[in-house]
Computed example of a mutant assay.
Amino acid sequence: MAVSQEVLEHATDLFGALGPLRTGRMFSGVALYVEEDVMFAMIASSGTIYMKSDHSTLAQFEAAGSLPFTYTRATGQRQVTSLMSLPDSAADDPDEAAQWARLSLGPARAAAEKKRAEKARKAARKAS
Results as ranks from 00 to 15, higher is better:
M1L: 12
V3E: 09
S4C: 05
Q5I: 07
Q5E: 15
E6P: 07
H10K: 15
A11Y: 01
T12C: 11
D13A: 11
L14A: 03
F15C: 10
F15W: 12
G16P: 00
A17S: 13
L18V: 05
G19R: 07
P20D: 15
P20W: 08
P20M: 08
P20F: 10
R22G: 11
R22E: 12
R22L: 12
T23H: 06
T23E: 14
T23N: 09
F27S: 11
S28F: 00
S28R: 15
S28T: 12
G29R: 07
V30N: 10
V34N: 04
V34Q: 05
V34R: 02
E35Q: 13
E35T: 03
V38T: 15
V38M: 06
M39Y: 04
F40D: 09
M42K: 11
S45F: 05
S46I: 07
T48I: 05
T48Y: 04
Y50P: 03
M51W: 09
K52S: 11
S53V: 13
S53T: 08
D54V: 04
D54M: 07
D54Q: 04
H55A: 07
H55L: 07
H55V: 04
H55S: 14
S56W: 02
S56P: 05
L58Y: 08
L58I: 14
F61E: 01
F61W: 15
E62T: 15
A63C: 02
A63P: 01
L67M: 12
P68G: 10
T70I: 00
Y71H: 15
R73M: 14
T75W: 10
R78A: 15
V80M: 08
T81G: 03
S82G: 10
P87W: 00
D88H: 05
D88N: 04
D92I: 06
D92C: 05
D92L: 00
D93P: 01
P94K: 10
D95E: 15
A97W: 08
A97I: 06
Q99G: 04
Q99M: 04
A101C: 02
A101K: 02
R102S: 03
R102Y: 02
L103M: 15
L105I: 09
G106W: 07
G106I: 02
G106S: 10
A108E: 10
R109S: 09
R109H: 06
R109D: 07
A110G: 03
A110C: 02
A111L: 14
A111T: 12
A111S: 13
A112R: 05
A112S: 14
K114Q: 15
K114H: 14
R116Y: 06
A117H: 14
E118M: 13
E118W: 03
E118N: 14
K119L: 09
A120G: 06
A120T: 04
R121H: 08
R121L: 06
K122P: 00
A123M: 13
A123P: 10
A123N: 12
A123Q: 13
A123Y: 01
R125N: 14
K126C: 00
S128I: 09
S128Q: 13
S128D: 07
